[in-house]
Amino acid sequence: MSVSAIVFWIIAAVILGSAISVVTAHNLVHAAFFMVLTFFGVSGLYVLLEADFLAVVQILIYVGAVAVLIVFGVMLTQRKEMAQTNAFSRHKWVAAFLVILLQILFGYAVTHTPWLVVDEAAPDTTVGLLGEMMLTELVIPFEAVGILLLVAVVGAIILTKGARRIL
């Protein structure tokens, strides 16, 4: 087995282990921290694929921001006993059946998609290309995401401050 394959399996084990822990942890705060570990593992996969920029973005956006927001949300809505905060569903067999079905579907999609194979080497720097695409070809989706985020920010301010105090 080559070195990169060994590294891949280690990272995969970390991702899957922490992802399972996110679901099974009884304490919601622990679950949130396991989620941080999962995101970190995914960025490790990107590094392995030599997608440096994507790996860095993964850490900045998901680990840095989303995880912190999750933890904030969790802490502000806690109950008396932290050990019972991660609610469990009673229909675990139905859930397991659905998950297996979904996995089969994913597996089928991955193995049966005619992936486009290119002979060219991967570009050294992707930052410039991505930036150019965002401001030319993908400018409308880019702006739409911007507006979406702006609406979310305004909504958050109104939720915390109350509409009357602002207007």
Binding site: F33, V56, I59, L60, V63
Partner: peptide, 21 residues
């Protein structure tokens, strides 16, 4: 690293996680 500067800031943002812990 060709995204060195960006790497610095994303790594620095990890500091918040340990302070929360």
């Amino acid at each position: 690293l060709n995204v060195g500067l960006f790497y610095c800031f994303s790594i620095a943002s990890l500091g918040t996680v340990s302070f929360l812990m």
